[in-house]
Write a protein that binds this DNA or RNA. Structure first.
Length: 282
DNA sequence: CCGGCATGGCAAA
DNA sequence: TTGCCCTGCCGGA
């Protein structure tokens, strides 16, 4: 479930449902028991997202959550406290008040940290398209001098924090860029367009709780065909659509492994092989 | 029923 | 580059 839009959505959910009052903090599974106990009964100030990291603030400390690949955090809100709150499966962290509760399962990280700990996590992060303080120049500075494929660079949290496998595949498709093209061959205008698009797509995903990237003119539903909504819940061009027809040109979508992750692209729409622009003289 | 896979990231080799 | 971790879900037997 976890690209940046999920984390930001969770931060909003935490703040709306559980902030501003003391919470009960436990670890039914036990692996977070000691630290959960340290903030049990404490005031939950707010939750904040930075890329794929979630910080749940308690005074000068915070619980740092990173969902990783398998993690899930579910809110069960507004049960009024009267209903049973069953313990099913491995619940690393349960946070609750009289209104409702949240269960965290299978996170890659769940740890109580202080200010220095927070900084050590956020300092290396690049601009997050979902944050007001994001400076895309920081990402561009790395991209423009890198021989690494742009398909890998976009997954690099130092370049664009919060972007994951779906957004990387989809934004490259939308800009017709070959994922294997070296970062240094990307044009400034292209980076600007990619960044602006990420800001829009990711905010949209925060609002809707799903990733939709297909433009209206290519939308199967609008064109009278069946939706192709993926298990992740959104309507996409190429992500996890290997061998299926490209929505625009009908060429079979290709897939390969890049950096240990599955990459998807349309070999026809995404052809940006180009010569390196000669350096300006003088 | 069970193995593999997943929107991630780390360490080891 | 590979393996491993976390957990739940899905597809194939």
């Amino acid at each position: 479930m976890p690209e940046g839009h999920v984390t930001h959505r969770l931060a909003i959910g935490f703040t709306e449902r559980l902030a501003g009052a003391p919470v009960r903090s436990t670890s039914p599974q036990g692996r977070f028991a000691e630290e959960a106990g340290e903030v049990d009964g404490h005031l939950l100030d707010a939750a904040e997202a930075y890329g794929k990291n979630l910080f749940v603030h308690f005074g000068d400390r915070a619980v740092h959550v990173h969902l990783g690949l398998a993690g899930k955090l579910a809110f069960v809100g507004d049960d009024g406290g009267g209903a049973a709150r069953p313990i099913t499966g491995a619940i690393r962290w349960r946070v609750e008040n009289e209104r409702g509760y949240a269960d965290l399962r299978g996170p890659q990280a769940c740890k109580l940290v202080d200010d220095a700990g927070i900084r050590s996590i956020t300092d290396p992060l690049g601009p997050d398209p979902l944050r007001e303080d994001a400076d895309p120049e920081v990402g561009w500075a790395r991209v423009r001098r890198s021989a690494t494929p742009i398909g890998l660079l976009l997954m690099d949290q130092r370049i664009s924090a919060g972007v994951g496998n779906i957004f990387r595949a989809e934004v490259l498709y939308r800009h017709r860029i070959d994922p294997m093209m070296q970062g240094r061959l990307l044009r400034r205008k292209e980076w600007d367009a990619i960044w602006t698009d990420l800001v829009g797509l990711m905010h949209d995903a925060v609002r809707k709780g799903r990733i939709d990237t297909v433009r209206p003119e290519h939308d199967p539903v609008a064109m009278g065909r069946a939706p192709r909504v993926d298990r992740h819940g959104g309507e996409v061009y190429v992500y996890r659509r290997a061998d299926q027809a490209c929505l625009v040109c009908a060429t079979p979508v290709r897939t390969t492994t890049l950096g240990g992750r599955n990459l998807f692209w349309c070999p026809s729409c995404q052809r940006t092989s180009r010569r390196r622009v000669p350096a300006a003289r003088g």
